[in-house]
Design a protein around this nucleic acid. Structure first.
Lengths: 293, 293
DNA sequence: TTGTAGTGTTGCGTAATTTGCAATATGGTC
DNA sequence: GACCATATTGCAAATTACGCAACACTACAA
């Protein structure tokens, strides 16, 4: 949604709260962005909408009129949505989604935004957890669908919709520790402690990749459940790990790990939305796929 | 105007004409852009708005609803404009603008767009001509204001509002001719025929620039009125000329002239909007400056 | 008075988006 | 069957938006 509607929504909220920082956070943008959005609106309209003194924000006369206007426009938009979705008999109910913590940050929001706009009555339940468990959750119908990596052998019972390629990375601690020494000096793969996901596609990727190296048996220091925890263990200096880059980027300990280059190609994940084949024609699920396609 | 309003306007027109190419031209965009704008709208809305077969375009059911919606939104927007500009007592009348042919293409449209949106009742008259005559036209009140280059000595009777820096360029014919030979072989400035504007800032720039070269008397082949004509003469092989780059870029004979590099720095024009000081408080003129600032 | 916390704005480098051209696909027309 | 008209898509270039960090300013406390 690149529409100006976004600006209108933000303005309406800003006009209510009269507080840039809070409104910006509410809409997941930086204060500077909000500031510039208001500036753009004022330029469009040709009037000052908000009198802002570095300490206070106040609606101007024109701002009040614009506020009314904005609410009208938004209401009409909602009406249109409603009207167009009548065929779908105003979907409502619960939609249970499973995805990894990281995907919840990086890939889920844009998907949900459009869906929520179109079907505001649907309640969305989000369960986050280890990415490797995603398919299992779908299979036992604990959730309606999952944001998951596609395994090389995807059972026929699933439908999969591609979202993005997720590159993997090999990471090592930055702190001074034994692992650090091994990396910089000897670098014998079979001796470096390695931390792996317990199971799931990332683990499979590792096995392929390591086998290609032909360096003897791997020294697996630990296996953990969940990529996020894996990054933490690497950061603590326990060993070297293999995880999706995006997990590292969003990790709070990002500064404490480093990427290892020149370790060979690791085939990226294929991230996507996955649900049971038999359920893909259920209205809610169908609507979701419609919204994200 | 980055607003989605643009998309709505285009959709409304498209829904009327049911013809991409014509509608696109009407809005000064390429058909592909229009096509993608419709695609975006359909994605936003979640329904097909136009059934398009490579041969025919038809409004879908959802398209009809969206058409109504779009007209409502646009009407509200116009109402807002109207309401906010009431203070200005709904400006109307004529506004007479003078500018060069080139500026009419390159710099005027974005200025006029916002003004027209804000003051739809004002009739705009545009006179194009030699950029060098611009100030004169303003002074004798033949026009309300002009898009013109700022002369180094700007009389106090004018108000000037900066728009852009316009770099100048020295151009030569690409065809095989005497001038071409001179350029590639001897290159004695005093022998190369030069084509100049009759008067105006571009002429002044030339004189400064040539004097700095200290190459004796210039061989002025001809002086012409209007930069556009000058480019044509150069293209015909009459000599070498000095004109704003933007004029060359928009010239139909662009392919037949080449830029001469390494001829020294020529100070760029300062292009701007210029009107008589005494008239800058007249409502129409004031409103125009408001709209472009 | 000085320091500090909180606020909106601006400069700037980067990333995402949009655009138009050229090529493509496809259906009418002579 | 060749040719024109029409909308769409691939791709590179230009434009635009974004967030970070630095800034300017105010209020309030020490």
């Amino acid at each position: 949604m690149h529409v100006e509607l976004k600006s209108l929504r933000m303005f309406v909220d800003l006009a209510k709260s009269l507080h840039f920082a809070k409104t910006a956070e509410l809409h997941h943008v930086s204060p500077s962005t909000l500031s510039r959005i208001v500036q753009r609106l004022e330029l469009e309209v040709g009037s000052v909408l908000l009198h802002r003194d570095n300490r206070t924000v106040l609606l101007s006369e024109a701002g009040k009129q614009f506020y009314q206007f904005a609410e009208q426009q938004l209401e009409q938009w909602q009406l249109l949505q409603f009207s167009l979705n009548q065929k779908q008999a105003q979907l409502h109910g619960k939609l249970h989604i499973y995805c990894s913590v990281t995907a919840a940050y990086s890939h889920l929001p844009p998907l949900l935004e459009r869906f929520r706009q179109r079907h505001p009555l649907v309640e969305i339940m989000l369960t986050t957890g280890d990415a490797a468990d995603a398919l299992e959750q779908v299979e036992k119908q604990a959730v309606d669908f999952a944001i998951a990596a596609k395994p090389e052998q995807l059972s026929r019972i699933f439908t999969f919709h591609h979202l993005a390629k997720i590159p993997l990375a090999v990471i090592a601690p930055t702190m001074v520790c034994r692992v650090q020494q091994q990396i910089q000096q000897d670098f014998v793969w079979s001796q470096i402690p390695i931390i792996l996901p317990e199971h799931g596609p990332a683990r499979k990727r590792f096995e392929y990749w390591y086998r290609k190296k032909q360096q003897g048996k791997a020294n697996i220091y630990a296996t953990v459940s969940g990529h996020e925890a894996l990054v933490s263990m690497v950061a603590l200096g326990c060993g070297v790990g293999i995880v999706p880059q995006v997990v590292v980027e969003n990790s709070p300990v990002k500064e404490r790990v480093q990427y290892l280059d020149n370790v060979g190609e690791i085939e990226p994940f294929e991230l996507g939305v996955c649900c049971l084949n038999q359920r893909k024609d259920q209205p809610l699920i169908k609507a979701f796929f419609e919204a994200i396609k």
